[in-house]
């Protein structure tokens, strides 16, 4: 018997790290998928790219640091990380200092990525 190929999951992350609980929710889904060895791709777009800003400091605010949590994802085997180049250009920051290595994609590449995955979850 041949095992079914695992479903390829894409998380489209479009919201800022601390404006809602969506960033945490998307992390939880990513970690759950990784725990079950399901391939998961992260795509940051819109305000979601703000999760990749370096120097997030949540100590005084008393909430988990999304930037640092993101930095741990490669240790969970999550390596497919992409970012909407247009959103990065909009906010004018360099990806080389981001807590998580992310590959910039143009609009056409993102549309293609939607089609290369079996399930699409928006956060």
């Amino acid at each position: 018997m041949v095992a079914a190929a695992p479903k390829r999951l894409l998380l489209l992350i479009r919201h800022s790290p601390y404006g809602s609980s969506l960033a945490r929710a998307s992390l939880d889904v990513a970690l759950a998928a990784a725990a079950f060895d399901q391939p998961v791709t992260l795509l940051f777009a819109g305000d979601g790219v703000l999760q990749l800003l370096p120097e997030q400091d949540t100590h005084a605010r008393g909430v988990k640091n999304i930037g640092r949590l993101l930095a741990s994802l490669p240790l969970y085997g999550i390596e497919q990380v992409y970012v909407d180049a247009q959103a990065v250009a909009h906010y004018q920051f360099a990806l080389d200092t981001a807590p998580l290595k992310a590959v910039p994609l143009d609009s056409g590449q993102i549309s293609e990525m939607f089609r290369n995955h079996d399930q699409l979850l928006g956060f």
Binding site: N65, R68, L69, S72, Y76
Partner: peptide, 15 residues
């Protein structure tokens, strides 16, 4: 300190 979380087994082994 680095990741603001306690590791699960897999990341702990890698780390």
């Amino acid at each position: 300190r680095e990741f603001d979380s306690s590791p699960a087994m897999r990341p702990l082994v890698k780390y």
